[in-house]
Amino acid sequence: MTPSRLDLQALALGYEGRAFMRGIDLRVDASEIVAILGPSGSGKSTLLSAIAGVVPPLDGRILIDGRDVTRAPIHERDVGLIFQEPLLFPHLDVASNIAYGLRRHGQTRKAALLRATELLEWLGLGGYERRRVDELSGGQAQRVALARALAPRPAVLCLDEPFSALDADLRQRLAVEVSAMLRESGVAAIHVTHDPTEARTVADRVIELSALGEAL
C-alpha cells in the first residue's frame, strides 16, 4: 500500500510549552481535500503551523509521502501555506511572487517566470504579470497566493481560513474554483475554517477539530 501523502501520528500541540491537544491522528491522500472545522481560538492554526514546520509539535510524528518530517526545517518539507491574508511579497510584482518558490527549487529565472505566466492564465489573470501586488483586488490577490503556493508542486497544502477576509459572494465562488484547482493539482489539502458551508463546498471530508484528538 502506498503511504498517504500526509500522515499525522499521535500529534500533541501546545503553546509556549503547554499542551492543549494531544493524540491527533489524521491521514490525507493525494488529491484529497480535508476540511477541519472548529471555532476560532481552538487551535486549528497551530495544527497547520505544526504541519508546515513553523511551530514544532510537542509530541508525535508528521509523515509526508512516508518520510518523517517532524524535525525537518520548513523549507525542506514540501508543504505549502495559505493564510487568511494573501501575504504577497510587497516588493515583488505578481509574476515574481509566483516564481519565487520555483526559483528556490532551482529553476532558472526564465523558466520560473514562464511557469508563472501559465499559472496566471490558468487562474484567469493573464496579463497581470508585471502588476504591483497592491493593485490587486482581494479575490485576485488570494488567487495569486494560491498559484504561488502551488507553483513548486508541494505534497501538502495548508489553507488557514483562506476566504474569510472576502465578501460572501466572492467567498462562495472562489471556494468552488479553488477546490477544483486543488483536485487538479494532486496536492493533499487541509483546509481550516469556522464556516460549515464553506467546509462542505470545498472538501471531500469534513472533520471537527475536537474529533481529531483529545483536547486538554
Binding site: P73, H75, F89, Y100, G101
Partner: peptide
Amino acid sequence: DYESVARTLGASRWR
C-alpha cells in the same frame, strides 16, 4: 507570516 510563506516555498531561514 511572510517569512513562513517564503520558507514553505523552499527558502532557507537566511534566504
